[in-house]
Write a protein that binds this DNA or RNA. Structure first.
Lengths: 137, 137
DNA sequence: TTTACTGCAAAATGTTTGCACAACA
DNA sequence: TGTTGTGCAAACATTTTGCAGTAAA
């Protein structure tokens, strides 16, 4: 039983073919996929998969922190499997390939300075980088 | 003639009452506003303003870097006036009030490290903080 | 007076919901 | 066997487009 299946079980949710299809597609993806893409690829694994179920699966997975949404200029509905402990995303602007990297410590100083200057109390942060991957350079 | 009007003129665009309304509303806003909100507030300044025009104005303004889109968990269509030279946004999770702050230098070291580790060539970055503003604490 | 801009209506997209049936535990 | 989950259809929300009239320059 894989990690995500355990997470689902422990949350009282069932392991279904549809959810397995969505998860498998996400696990094989190198770039953020939108619901429509997930449906198209998922249909190869589960012939009766529907867009509605993709949406509902993503909602559940996001709640359980199994996947994360990636926001980009034009589309904000790309989903990526969550890499444990890692927080930030770097996306290739040519092929869309995404990698995650850790980095919360690097921002501590910056955040402290911003808090002092603005009077805000910073709770969460969100950093996203865009560039060109090794193969597309 | 204000700065945004000059920018529009130089781009060969006209200064219209509708665009003036949208810009005025944005200038007075303390938090990101979505098209619907811009319409509602803009109607007080320009009685014939339409949602279509709000969308078209925002598209133009964004192209000219007069406004920027702010992405949040639930909505990604909030617009904010661009503060010259400043890059990052900090939003209060209680009242929505947003402030911008400079900060590109702080990330240079982090970016250099990520480039080395991933092989990517980083072009742009995007940092957004969420917290509680002084008044909401 | 020219032509960029606007509003309307409608189309195109994207997302959510109600409901009866299916299938996981 | 009892729910939870699914697919369908339809509702809903959001964004875009075609077009004729309007108003900036």
């Amino acid at each position: 039983m894989s990690t995500w299946e355990e997470t689902l079980s422990q949350a009282g949710c069932r392991i279904t073919e549809s959810r397995r299809a969505v998860m498998t597609v996400l696990a094989q993806a190198e770039r953020p996929l939108v619901p429509q893409e997930l449906l198209a690829l998922g249909l190869k694994l589960q012939a009766t998969l529907s867009l509605v179920t993709v949406y509902r699966s993503l909602e559940l997975f996001e709640e359980l922190s199994l996947v994360r949404r990636v926001h980009q200029d034009t589309k904000c509905q790309g989903y990526l499997l969550t890499a444990a402990g890692h927080r930030h995303v770097l996306i290739c602007e040519k092929c869309g390939r995404a990698v995650e990297f850790p980095g919360q410590d690097d921002l501590a100083a910056l955040i402290a300075r911003v808090e002092e200057r603005t009077g805000y109390q910073v709770k969460t942060h969100w950093l996203q980088l865009r560039g060109v991957c090794a193969e597309c350079q």
